[in-house]
Simulated scan of single mutants.
Amino acid sequence: MQVDELEYVSFWARVGASLIDTILLGVIIWPILTALYGESYWSSQKMLQGPMDFIMSWLFPAVAVIIFWLTKQATPGKMAISAKVVDARTGQSLTTGQSIGRYLSYFLAGLPLGLGILWVAFDRRKQGWHDKLAGTVVVRQKNRHPEPVTFER
């Protein structure tokens, strides 16, 4: 795909993609955690309930997201909006190191009241701090519609 056929993906489109990913992960994780730890899991003040809590709440999402970035260049949410996460210099697929770094950088970007995530709304290339730290951008094809809308008269 030619560079002039691409656009950076906006903040709100990325928020929508994140919501899709969160819902999908929740549909998978929440029933498992409830089955393992019971309804009291959701009212507990403990950071971790046990080893499966760590695996399902922290390890599984990280591995799933990184595998999607490496194999599809996008999570299901980003696929739903036709977006891809690519190397900011070359436009190519992410390396394993970039993927891991980008994932871990989300935590840093979220720390100062989410400012690093909100940065996407103001940045020229629509990069959050996690993108800047990992050297990535989120792009999609311009004018993704196959034909313009027309009406018969």
Rank of each mutant, 00 (worst) to 15 (best):
I23A: 13
I67L: 12
G16M: 02
K142M: 11
A74H: 02
W12V: 11
I100V: 15
E152A: 14
K132N: 11
R89W: 04
A88D: 14
I28A: 13
V9M: 06
T95P: 08
I23E: 01
F68I: 08
A121M: 11
R144K: 09
V3A: 12
A17Q: 01
R140M: 10
S18D: 07
S93I: 10
R102H: 11
S40N: 11
L113N: 12
D87S: 14
I20K: 05
K46G: 13
E147C: 06
L48A: 10
I28N: 05
I32E: 01
M79A: 13
L115G: 14
I67D: 01
T75S: 15
L24P: 01
E7L: 07
Y106F: 14
P61C: 02
P51C: 08
V85H: 05
L48Y: 14
I55A: 13
T34D: 12
L113I: 15
V85P: 01
F122V: 09
I81M: 02
V137E: 00
T150M: 13
K132G: 05
L118R: 06
N143L: 09
E5A: 13
V138A: 00
L6G: 09
D87G: 07
R153N: 15
A121F: 07
G77I: 01
G16W: 02
P31A: 05
Y106D: 03
G77H: 00
D87Q: 07
A134L: 07
I67Y: 03
S57N: 00
I23M: 08
W30C: 14
S43H: 13
R125C: 06
D4R: 07
W129T: 11
Q45R: 12
F68L: 04
S99A: 15
R89D: 15
W42C: 04
I117Q: 14
D123C: 08
G26W: 15
V149N: 12
W42E: 04
Y41V: 10
Y8T: 06
F54M: 10
A88P: 05
P148M: 09
L118P: 04
S57I: 00
